[in-house]
Design a protein around this nucleic acid. Sequence first.
DNA 1: AATGAATGAGGATTCATTCAT
DNA 2: CATGAATGAATCCTCATTCAT
Lengths: 203, 203, 203, 203
Amino acid sequence: MNERSPTLIPDTGRGNQAAILNAALEAFGEKGFYGASMRDVARGAGTSLSNLYNYFPAKADLLAALLRMANDELLSRIQAAVDGAGRRASDRLRAAVVAHVGFVVDHQVASLVALSEIRYLTGVARKRVVAARDSTQGLYEEIVAAGSASGEFATPYPDDAARNIVSMCAAIATWYHPGGRLTPEQLAGQHAHYALALLQGPL
Amino acid sequence: MNERSPTLIPDTGRGNQAAILNAALEAFGEKGFYGASMRDVARGAGTSLSNLYNYFPAKADLLAALLRMANDELLSRIQAAVDGAGRRASDRLRAAVVAHVGFVVDHQVASLVALSEIRYLTGVARKRVVAARDSTQGLYEEIVAAGSASGEFATPYPDDAARNIVSMCAAIATWYHPGGRLTPEQLAGQHAHYALALLQGPL
Amino acid sequence: MNERSPTLIPDTGRGNQAAILNAALEAFGEKGFYGASMRDVARGAGTSLSNLYNYFPAKADLLAALLRMANDELLSRIQAAVDGAGRRASDRLRAAVVAHVGFVVDHQVASLVALSEIRYLTGVARKRVVAARDSTQGLYEEIVAAGSASGEFATPYPDDAARNIVSMCAAIATWYHPGGRLTPEQLAGQHAHYALALLQGPL
Amino acid sequence: MNERSPTLIPDTGRGNQAAILNAALEAFGEKGFYGASMRDVARGAGTSLSNLYNYFPAKADLLAALLRMANDELLSRIQAAVDGAGRRASDRLRAAVVAHVGFVVDHQVASLVALSEIRYLTGVARKRVVAARDSTQGLYEEIVAAGSASGEFATPYPDDAARNIVSMCAAIATWYHPGGRLTPEQLAGQHAHYALALLQGPL
DNA sequence: AATGAATGAGGATTCATTCAT
DNA sequence: CATGAATGAATCCTCATTCAT
């Protein structure tokens, strides 16, 4: 909960809600959606099993809430970074990637859960999360398209490149260890470099 | 089982073993390791629940067998491709990526399962699969290192670049649809391009 | 639950706990630990299978609880009887045997289960029950040793004699039928006689 | 299989029958009738699961065969010992007990199984084993009755005393350890003493 | 005799969820 | 809001047994 990590899960004032969500995040992160039980969540949240249902009517709603928050936060971070960047597409892209990597590092577990447990969402909840994810990718596509139009980028496959940028950023969650060889800032810088590299024309 | 898809699961002669593995692959792919039940697998294999246990003493052994096969096949495909390529690092890298993408496309479900269900493996089984995965990445690292030494590549972070190449190839399994906009060959070519792009020096 | 049979299983207030223990006792007594299923116990207790696990986390815990109660009650009955008897070792022994036989008759099924199902206990639970059993035998050994020292008894093998006394009392559970030829009191008197007879010197 | 232990299980010449019975004895002794599985028995006998059924059509038949053999051997050993003893009831009783204890020590596991697993026998098989057991006790009752008639014994409860003699001998199986404090011969002598002690009149 | 494959019933246990308080 | 008790369905897995070879 430091400066770099504005809390993902809002303190709603409703006593245990945040504790429950945090416990669910941890449980899903450790054992997966099916592997984690509501009892695990209750234990982690320090409340009773039945009390969970006063906040979330079903297990899937816990996952849905988690994924919605994660995607919203990711999207708004990237959006804000892009808005604060200059006109040039490369600057905007760099800002987006730096924000993206920052989010993954700040909320690694949430990123991991968002990556691997979305499949267990169904119906409306799933559609909303997928839409948010698409919005994120859309941001990248816009930047790439603008850069292509302006001649800054030369990639023959703008949308595919955008997707790969997202993949690379998301994949960080699967291997990152705090305190590793690279600082978060270095990691972000590195990935900004990769993103720009992907947008080059034929070599 | 066409030319592009040498069977992942060997026909052992033991009647149902292949059927069981295929059913498990399908079930794990669709519902995840915990989400799929042994009944699902039995149904898919056209045998009785209890008979599964004559072939695999535990559910986790099914997953372990699947992941071992997938990783072995991926590794040997890439190895063969690299061995058959020329001397130049860029040619070798291109061959590796093309083989990699080919595998993911041929065995998309297995690739997806290998990507997302490995976490449910424990003990020795997990170690073996992780080692196989590391071997694959090691292949890329060798190629990148050789190319860096020869001056073909200029990336300042060779190992990180190798990891991102693997991430991009693996991620294909999460979105690819046969019959989509790109043929498998185009997809492979595109990713070979991305791989080389990642290895550029400062832009 | 009459005067002669102060309840073995305490009414804890927790609604079903006593019912579950009683049902388990009956089931284990009738079919043995492995032969009885948790479904049998649930049926006997008039509750659902899954609800059993709110009270006892495993089948073995049911057995452990049962055996602990039986041994505790046996030990405290004998202890109380001995404490209430006079100084003479023969009086104390007689009191112990009478109490022992009384327990076996009052709680025949529990005695039988304690005799034959203890083998299915493992780990700490087993150790505790074995210790309680040894305590009971220790009571007899003390009495016999005291009587030997005072010259009341002349047996050349005091500890072996004590063990046989216990064996004889315990064995009653394997054949006793309420309403048989002997009243419980006669049976107790008879066994008190046997116990003293065992302590004779060379004939 | 030394001189003191003429094999309980006859070598029928039918290849594996003896091995199967021995494995069943060991398995039932270790885990109990329900706790041991036919797979355990097959493994112990070094044969296949299905081959068991060529020798014994059901699991219960294995137990029945075992118990029949054990009881037959016990009975015939006691019978022979009594027949070889002199006229005096005390000599005959002593001989019976010595033979009885010898059997329990020689075939401790079988004795234990006979003691504790008979409950899992049903129907005719059970009746036959119970009858054999009653015959053994009958032998003791005859001796005691004869000794009572002749004035050698003075017990007021001849049949109950006989039962207790049997109980004491049988109980040896539950605690005996080869190489313990007492040699088998000492143990036998001790129990002969106890048996005679039980037959004394009022002390 | 001997075996490997097969099966239906049932084993203990855990699940998400509900309800009365 | 909060809880403990309760439940039916489902979990993985093992069972004794059968059958074709």
